[in-house]
């Protein structure tokens, strides 16, 4: 037993390489945190002053946006953003859930796989391409409607909504499908055994059980819709007025790139202010998202 090795370290502590790598990985992990802190900080630093100057109430609830006259009311944009997003979600939700049911429960496996691939593709199409398609295909269609109703033809809220519907559909479909698939098969079997039909078991048992997942899909879709800028710019007409379904609208997101190039001074500050308002809205939605996800998690564990 004379050849037995000692386990006492030649050098003290962990080796240098080990410690360096540990530190490096920690720094990588902290990058995300640092980015969020800096983003929050600089959104407030950049957007705060104009809101303080105009006054919170006049900025958020002011109805006139006229930078040349130093009128910075973003209420029409907030309402338009909410209208476009809300409308898009209202249309996309039933469609998305029905497609999710089809993919998860009714379609044969191979067909479902092919369709899923196509829908994945839909999610990857750049927003500017959607904008282009909307401007070329959708807006002219709505022109006909506007002409028939003797309204001036222009980009409009309806077009913005429909483009957003297509953009958030993949999200809602895939999240809902995952949620529906996660429902234990026994639930449905139990319903079938009690004599309900296939569809009854799906709509009365599976969908209610997948509710929290579907809600997560809605919130995720809402986040995506409210943050979309480029596709909407190309179809929405972009007048900063209170929204009507067939009239031009301007959302919070679209105001920034539209006026960016020719803004300076207070005007640019006001765009930062819009950015801050949007940032706050997105953060609120994300918080809701996290809460619903947690509830969903509780269900999955159970």
């Amino acid at each position: 037993m004379s050849e037995t090795q000692s386990i006492i370290a030649v050098r003290k502590g962990k080796s240098g390489v080990e410690r360096t790598m540990n530190l490096l990985f920690l720094l990588c992990g902290l990058t995300a945190v640092v980015c969020v802190v800096f983003m929050t900080l600089y959104m407030v630093v950049a957007g705060g002053p104009i809101i303080a100057k105009v006054g919170f109430f006049d900025f958020v609830f002011g109805r006139t946006w006229n930078p040349e006259n130093s009128q910075f009311g973003i209420f029409p944009m907030i309402v338009s953003s909410i209208a476009a997003t809300g409308g898009a979600v209202l249309i996309a939700l039933p469609c998305g859930v029905l497609v999710a049911v089809f993919l998860a429960k009714l379609a044969p496996d191979r067909i479902a796989a092919a369709l899923r691939a196509l829908i994945d593709l839909l999610a990857g199409i750049p927003s500017v391409v959607y904008g282009l398609l909307g401007a070329i295909l959708l807006v002219p269609l709505i022109f006909n409607l506007q002409t028939a109703l003797r309204l001036p033809t222009s980009g409009n809220l309806l077009a913005a909504m429909l483009i957003l519907v297509i953009m958030i559909l993949p999200t809602i479909i895939s999240v809902s499908e995952t949620a529906i698939r996660a429902v234990p098969k026994e639930y449905e079997d139990a319903a079938l055994a009690l004599g309900s039909t296939r569809l009854q078991s799906i709509f009365k048992v599976s969908i209610p059980a997948a509710k929290s997942g579907i809600v997560a899909g809605i919130v995720l879709g809402t986040g995506r819709a409210i943050g979309e800028a480029m596709a909407v710019i190309m179809v929405a007409g972009n007048a900063a007025i209170m929204p009507t379904l067939l009239g031009p609208v301007r959302l919070l997101t679209t105001s920034i790139p539209i006026e960016w190039a020719y803004s300076s001074g207070t005007h640019r500050d006001a765009l930062y202010g819009i950015g801050l308002a949007l940032f706050v809205m997105i953060m609120a939605i994300n918080t809701i998202f996290r809460k619903t996800l947690k509830k969903g998690g509780a269900f999955d564990d159970g």
Binding site: M1, T4, Q5, S6, I7, I8, A9, V10, K12
Partner: peptide
Amino acid sequence: LDGEDVYGKNVDVTV
């Protein structure tokens, strides 16, 4: 272990 404490100071866990 062979007279050395495995949980003692300066133990090189890899060894």
